[in-house]
Nucleic acid binder design. Structure first.
Lengths: 205, 205
DNA sequence: CAGTAAAATGACTACCCAGTCATTTTATCG
DNA sequence: CGATAAAATGACTGGGTAGTCATTTTACTG
């Protein structure tokens, strides 16, 4: 009997899916898609393997759920913070900052994200497209900012879509470097570095 | 009996290793490390599976050989072309251009390269280090250029190591976009775009 | 051409793992 | 407290593959 919008069953389902997702995120991050086994994910979530299949259709489905949810959360956070800034400069800086901080906080997720990027070429077209759409969605937040800047002559006339992807690449690159231990400076220093490079690179003369 | 520096055996070994590497490169690029089977690699090289193991210790060994040789060849090509340029501007442009063209010509290799990048986090430390060294080696070519530019006041005072990695990331990003079909322009247009962004970003005021 | 060594073969072993489903455990309710 | 349904279990199946090695093929040599 539905009492407060959610039936008992719905609550349980939500709980199990959450626990499984959390366990899966850690294992996929640690071992990669192939290295993480459904058995281990079940174990980590404190259930038996069969139970996993009561909540997710397949191993891939869990993987996708983890990836999709992570990207969606990131986009939301980025969008909110960008909207909160007044100036174009502030907005672009926020875009870089929030992404960097989000990944710094969610290292597990970033590892999955990056790994998916690497497999993009070997996946079937349809999966590649799905990931591409997800990735492009966050780039488009930035693209809109750049377009606005170009219109207002604050930014020189560049290809906004390409520039947005380039800035995303730079951000992703810095995060990778940080996770691999190649970056010696602090987060602030890294943010400042990228932002300076980008801003000087795109600002109107 | 060694006649011309190489024994019959050495020639055969070299030939087989080459054939296998070529076949492996294609398959790894197409299917990824897990998707490519030793059987298929052997097939593609026109030998039986057992023969593969006469020339390579393991599947991983073939993979590494393909990756290492590809990166080494790229570095060599980049270094040569960079050296051939006179100006700092020309050298930096050459760095970007040659990498882009090299990968454009060796798409198979790039797919392996990128995929390795994605798996960097899930590999054992020792393998990760090995790949890192390889990657950093090419970044150091650029780093040396930047340092020289900073010394000569042509480039503003920035962290040369971080900037070198950032420019590498940008280049890698563009190549990825091209391979995924996200980049609409031609190669020249992409090169010009990155170079402009970078040059304006790092040039002395 | 026979005999020997080098090279190649592919059937086989040993292992791994996604996904299933008959069975057991737990919750619900009259 | 049974009876019934919902949820969970884990042994099992089917498919797959890295790496081995006894056997066969090919090349070389006297």
């Amino acid at each position: 009997m539905p009492v407060l919008g959610k039936t008992r069953k719905e609550v349980l389902t939500e709980f199990r899916m959450e626990e499984l997702l959390e366990a899966a995120r850690k294992l996929f991050a640690e071992k990669g898609f192939h290295g993480a086994t459904v058995d281990k994910i079940a174990d980590a979530a404190g259930v038996a393997k069969g139970t996993v299949y009561l909540y997710y259709r397949s191993k891939r489905a869990i993987y996708w759920a983890a990836l999709e949810r992570g990207i969606a959360a990131m986009i939301e956070e980025v969008q909110t913070q960008v909207d909160a800034e007044e100036t174009l400069e502030g907005k672009i800086r926020a875009f870089i900052t929030i992404k960097l901080c989000y990944f710094e906080r969610n290292r597990d997720f970033f590892k999955i994200y990056i790994s998916e990027f690497g497999s993009a070429f070997t996946h079937p077209v349809q999966i590649r497209k799905r990931f591409g759409d997800l990735y492009l969605r966050q780039a488009r937040v930035l693209e809109a900012l750049l377009r606005e800047g170009i219109k207002r002559k604050a930014i020189r006339s560049i290809r906004a879509d390409t520039a947005a992807l380039a800035i995303s690449d730079l951000t992703r690159g810095i995060i990778t470097q940080r996770l691999l231990g190649w970056s010696k400076g602090g987060v602030e220093s890294d943010i400042r570095f990228i932002f300076d490079l980008v801003w000087k690179g795109i600002a109107a003369p």
